[in-house]
Nucleic acid binder design. Structure first.
Length: 672
DNA sequence: AGTAAAAGGTTTTTT
DNA sequence: ACCTTTTACT
């Protein structure tokens, strides 16, 4: 399987003398090379438990180790420590966390949990000044995370990334102080904490023990690591640790998460004597596609010089479609997807990529209308929807009775229970004091609820008691808790039935687990994607199309790729137009999107799009084609573009207004 | 006093 | 579509 490596790939596999940086362009066989290197290490007799493979997603680690296993050493491959920085941090902190003052039973907060906790603190501190809206809890969490992960001062973060929040600097400090204290007292860690504590451990008395865990460390997607992660890598390596990092600074797209390509550029400074190997032969795309990608990347100089080339010199030209508006775009994309399928490219070999999750909204409707099956990656996650969080809160309280956040969510979900009652119940049940018998107290009848919630509370007590009895596996516990949800959802949500169906899915997902707490941790560290309007994910043997944000498409490839909304303001996003670094990242994002395509590429540009995301009106804006595509326009085939049609459009709208006036007049005649 | 409903706003991308 | 603030209602 690995006997077909080219010279630089082979060099990257064999190099052992010093820390190694592999600069691997898109589609240059990076995964194959890394897997071959792991194989070589294992074949040489290394203890697989002492090999650490850090990847950007857990799926990437699993895939790579599957490739290693396929070469023969399957049992060894299964013992390699593979996963993300965060999942590895979890594992290490469970074992060594005591040295950092952590209880081993800490709970991990995902982004949504952290946001909710921040919201709770925010409300308690009460910063609602008259007439001045305080930043939303998502924004507050964003500022915090940005500040922590980039290790920057609050004032700098506000100035450069959140100028519209600068007025609230003092209030934010107060909230952050309270938020941090609350996390500590509740024994919970957010994503940033996991990295901070891991880094802290490497410089603590147990640092030596950590460095002794691994002889070989391999890190994928190194261009998307942040300064804390770079510190962790340094902190985990002894002078004789075999370190190998792989990345492509031209594909750095996580700057908003404080990732910095400086980690690649300064690799030789951090690890003296480091060697660099560059892979630039592309095995994925045809030359016409690479020409476009190179042309886009050439508009920036912010990376190691690299020019991808390929043996696949022939191939169809990429196509640039200009559409009148979004719905035309949706229809045309459907047509070209079906057309490609006619030519033998199955749906699974095709993907539609876009900058932001909501860019695909119109297309999703059109695909559903035409019965084209699809799965959407990125954008809103299943776990972020309110009803799923409701159920998870129930599980979490069972798991950790001191979980204040989960308790608050449960209590407030009942009829007639508002902030004041939640406060009273919290005190009565000992939740504010992190009492570990809060659930037991509640089951025994403590915490009287308002009459309107009597039925719901009675069922809740019974459900919690049943789940604690120990006879039910996690899946069955969810089934029982669902009854409580059925009592609560109708008053809480307008589409209760659909939401209850999601709970069934959660129960199905839990059936693979015997431990409730294991299920919860896995869920936060490796969340499933949202299954929006489908009853469940399509069966594996079915044919389905992939819809994905560009960020979630990193590292993947398809024979045919369709890119949506290649308009200035969408790609690049208008929020990035202000600063140079932001613009450069948007350009790399376009580059990542283009280089996902193997055989066919189509880029779509609607002339008009909705003014804002939540618009229910008909307000549109006329856009220019993406500034990244314009300079390479001659590399595309362009079907005849539609005329803008402004005149016809405005006439139609005028006519529409005229009819509406007539109708209003006729109606008012009925009561005047 | 406290909850529910109505009004008014809303900066992507993700571990 | 969801979140925050304001107002109305018990």
């Amino acid at each position: 399987m690995f006997d077909t490596l080219n010279a630089p790939q082979q060099a990257a596999v064999d190099h052992t003398a010093s820390p190694l940086l592999i600069v691997a362009g898109a589609g240059t066989g990076k995964t194959k090379t890394l897997a071959a290197r792991v194989s070589r290490i294992l074949d040489a007799g290394a203890d697989p438990n002492r090999v650490l493979l850090l990847t950007f997603t857990r799926r990437a680690a699993a895939e790579m180790l599957a490739r290693v296993a396929a070469t023969g050493s399957s049992r060894a491959a299964s013992q390699v420590w593979g996963g993300t920085f965060h999942s590895t941090a979890n594992r290490i902190l469970r074992n060594f966390g005591q040295a950092a003052g952590l209880s081993s039973g800490f709970t991990v907060l995902d982004q949504g949990d952290a946001t909710d906790l921040m919201g709770m603190v925010r409300t308690e501190e009460g910063f609602a000044e008259r007439g001045k809206r305080f930043p939303r809890k998502e924004t507050v969490t964003g500022i915090y995370s940005r500040m922590v992960s980039s290790q920057a001062k609050l004032s700098d973060v506000l100035e450069t990334d959140y100028p519209w929040c600068a007025d609230h600097a003092d209030d934010l400090k107060t909230i952050f102080t309270a938020y941090t204290a609350r996390k500590r007292s509740n024994h919970v860690l957010d994503y940033d904490d996991m990295l901070l504590f891991w880094r802290g451990l490497t410089v603590s008395p147990v640092g030596g023990a950590l460095r002794d865990l691994f002889d070989h460390v391999l890190i994928d997607e190194y261009q998307d690591t942040n300064p804390i992660q770079a510190d962790i890598v340094r902190g985990m390596c002894r002078p004789d640790t075999d370190l190998c990092v792989v990345g492509d600074d031209a594909q750095a797209i996580y700057g908003f998460r404080a990732a910095t390509v400086a980690n690649m550029w300064e690799f030789a400074d951090h690890f003296p004597g480091a060697t660099r190997v560059t892979l630039d032969q592309n095995y994925r795309s045809t030359m016409p596609i690479l020409a476009v990608a190179n042309g886009v990347l050439g508009q920036s100089n912010d990376h190691f010089a690299k020019h991808l080339w390929s043996d696949r010199t022939s191939g169809v030209s990429p196509i640039l479609h200009t559409h009148h508006d979004e719905s035309d775009q949706s229809r045309a994309v459907c047509e070209s997807i079906l057309d490609a399928r006619e030519r033998g490219i199955s749906l699974r070999d095709q993907a539609v990529l876009f900058r932001a999750g909501h860019h695909a909204d119109g297309l999703e409707l059109e695909l559903t209308r035409r019965d084209i099956p699809f799965v959407k990656y990125g954008g809103l996650k299943y776990l972020e929807s309110g009803h799923v969080k409701d159920l998870l809160a129930l599980l979490r309280v069972l798991d950790n009775p001191a979980d204040q956040l989960a308790w608050h969510r449960i209590l407030a979900s009942m009829e007639g229970v508002g902030p004041a009652t939640v406060r009273r119940l919290s005190a009565e049940l000992g939740i504010d004091d992190q009492a570990d018998d809060s659930v037991a107290r509640f089951i025994d009848g403590a915490g009287a609820v308002p009459p309107a919630a009597d039925t719901q509370a009675a069922d809740l007590r019974d459900a919690l008691a049943t789940c604690l009895s120990g006879d039910l596996n996690p899946s069955a516990q969810i089934d029982r808790l669902k009854q409580f949800c059925a009592l609560v959802f109708p008053t809480r949500y307008d589409n209760a039935t659909a939401r209850l169906a999601d709970i069934d899915q959660l129960a199905a997902g839990a059936s693979a687990y015997v431990s409730r707490s294991r299920f919860l941790t896995e869920l936060t560290l490796d969340p499933p994607n949202r299954t929006s309007d489908q009853a469940g994910p399509p069966h594996l043997d079915d044919d389905w199309l992939t819809l994905s944000t560009i960020h979630s498409a990193k590292g993947l490839e398809w024979r045919s790729v369709h890119i949506l909304h290649a308009a200035d303001g969408n790609m690049p996003s208008e929020m990035a137009l202000g600063d140079e670094a932001g613009l450069a990242e948007e350009l790399r994002l376009m580059y990542v999107a283009l280089t996902r395509a193997k055989d066919e590429l189509s880029v779509h540009f609607p002339l008009r799009f909705h003014v804002n995301r939540y618009a229910n009106d008909d307000r549109h804006v006329y856009a220019q084609i993406s500034r990244f595509i314009e300079p390479v326009r001659e590399l595309f085939d362009e079907p005849a573009a539609p005329s803008v049609g402004v005149d016809v459009e405005s006439e139609l709208q005028l006519a529409g207004v005229g009819v509406a006036d007539e109708v209003d007049l006729a109606l008012s005649a009925l009561w005047d």
